[in-house]
Amino acid sequence: MHNEENEKVVKIRGLKKSFDENHVLMGVDLDLYKGENLVVLGKSGSGKSVLIKIMVGLLTQDEGDIEILGKNTAGLSLKEFNKLRLKIGFSFQHSALYDSMTVKENLVFPLTRNIKGLTRKEIDKKVDELLDAVGLPQSVNQMPSELSGGQKKRIGVARTLILNPEIMLYDEPTAGLDPITCGDINKLITQVREQFNTSSIVITHDLTCAKATGDRMAVLLDGQFKAVGTFEEVFNNASDQRVKSFYDYNFIK
């Protein structure tokens, strides 16, 4: 899918993060290439979500460099970092929809806050386009409490796409969903990449999701990536017993 000449949109080097005595990330290196879907795998508590939360500034690293779209995040002012944030879409594990707003208001809120001078017609058009893209045009006036888990995830993705991000970060996109809805979400992740030309990092421990959505896999164990490559490369030739057992637990042999 990629070669070294492809543009790197994310470059992480020597990333470390600890919470008191709990060393979660211990020198993580990671590259995300333009247009690829990279899946970060790991068991619960291994630091997968911490990694992407550091990327968007929800957490700060103890050490290490993060370069996103050619900009080192460490040297940016809040204003510059916010500009960069607009190019990164973050889909939360539990969707994080604003529960006092309708679906439409959820989408319009980040749009009108960041892009001034849009007419009502332009806003409506954009909302309709995105709800169509995620397959929920009828939910425009619904409240988040009226949506199912899968629908919430879709609206969460639509809300991040409204700002035309170049990079999408999905935090456990299929967690807590039934297998059929998981399949729909996996298709949506692939469709978003094709339709909106995004590069993505998908955080998951679900190998079905990983296989369906990822071009490359990276397995996070003991705070470091132990195996990086295509699905086959990672799991067929896994030398680390824990990587192998990860596969065995997901696809019972």
């Binding site: 916010n82 944030r85 594990q93």
Partner: peptide
């Protein structure tokens, strides 16, 4: 409740 359900984080990552 907004904090617990990551709605505050969602604002922050949207540059709000």
């Amino acid at each position: 409740s907004m904090k617990v359900t990551e709605q505050i984080d969602a604002m922050e990552v949207s540059a709000i």
